[in-house]
């Protein structure tokens, strides 16, 4: 019996930009089971990233209810949201977002700094994750010494190292050539196979086709 990981009911998000109120998300209702692989597609400005930010507890909805892993986080404090992100949610970004002057191991082990995990465990788990993405021989390389594909693999290792329940990938292949993108998608698919729920935001329908379910968004709503 699978367990509901993400449950959104009537989630809306509005911003006020220079006096204008912008509706970024409009009454989104979504349910995601543990281990499910979902892709979200849609044109730029359709609200994909906002959805991902709220789902990833980086942002709070203006209205509606969001239950993550059974806990209502719609009105949670910043501290509480950080607690949920730490260890339960992993992010993969289009811009990779590694810390340049850190080496591979330091980047991957960063999430453990904010978790209640001792140093040896953190190092072991980080090294294992790096091994899984095939960069075991590059532990002490700085990120600027790596190729784009390798950098994204480090980012995947960072997201998966704490063994989160949910991985959110925002255009993970957007800055990579198609061949490298394929390999990255292989890795993400493996995460899903291993039991992690994955939400993938993309423009690319080929990339999206890897998911079990595809949602289309337009003007802040699912269509």
């Amino acid at each position: 019996m699978s367990h509901t990981l993400v449950s959104m009911a009537g989630v809306s998000k509005t911003y006020s930009l220079g006096g204008n109120v912008v509706q970024a998300l409009c009454e989104i209702t979504l349910c995601l089971e543990e281990g499910q692989f979902v892709a979200v597609m849609g044109p730029s400005g359709s609200g994909k990233s906002t959805l991902l930010n709220i789902m990833g507890c980086l942002d709070r909805p203006t209205s509606g209810t969001y239950l993550f892993d059974g806990e209502n986080v719609s009105r949670s404090s910043d501290e509480n949201l950080s607690d949920i992100r730490s260890g339960k949610i992993g992010f993969i970004f289009q811009q990779f977002n590694l810390i340049q002057h850190f080496n591979v191991l330091e980047n991957v082990s960063m999430p453990f700094l904010y978790m209640d995990v001792d140093q040896p465990t953190a190092m072991t788990k980080s090294a294992q994750a790096i091994e899984k993405v095939g960069l075991g021989h590059r532990l002490s390389h700085k990120s600027f010494e790596l190729s784009g594909g390798e950098i994204q693999r480090v980012a995947i290792a960072r997201a998966m190292a704490p063994e989160p329940k949910l991985i959110l990938a925002d255009e993970p292949t957007g800055n990579l050539d198609s061949q490298t993108g394929e390999r990255i998608m292989d890795l993400i698919s493996q995460l899903h196979v291993a039991g992690t729920a994955v939400v993938l935001v993309t423009h690319n329908s080929q990339v999206a086709s890897r998911a079990q379910t595809i949602y289309y968004m337009k003007d802040g709503c699912f269509v």
Binding site: D78, E79, S82, D83, S86, F91, M110, L113, Y114, M115
Partner: peptide, 16 residues
């Protein structure tokens, strides 16, 4: 700022 954003995304609290 970017580094701060990354750290916050991976779970750092404001106090960290």
């Amino acid at each position: 700022k970017k580094e701060i954003g990354i750290r916050r995304a991976v779970g750092a609290k404001k106090k960290h």
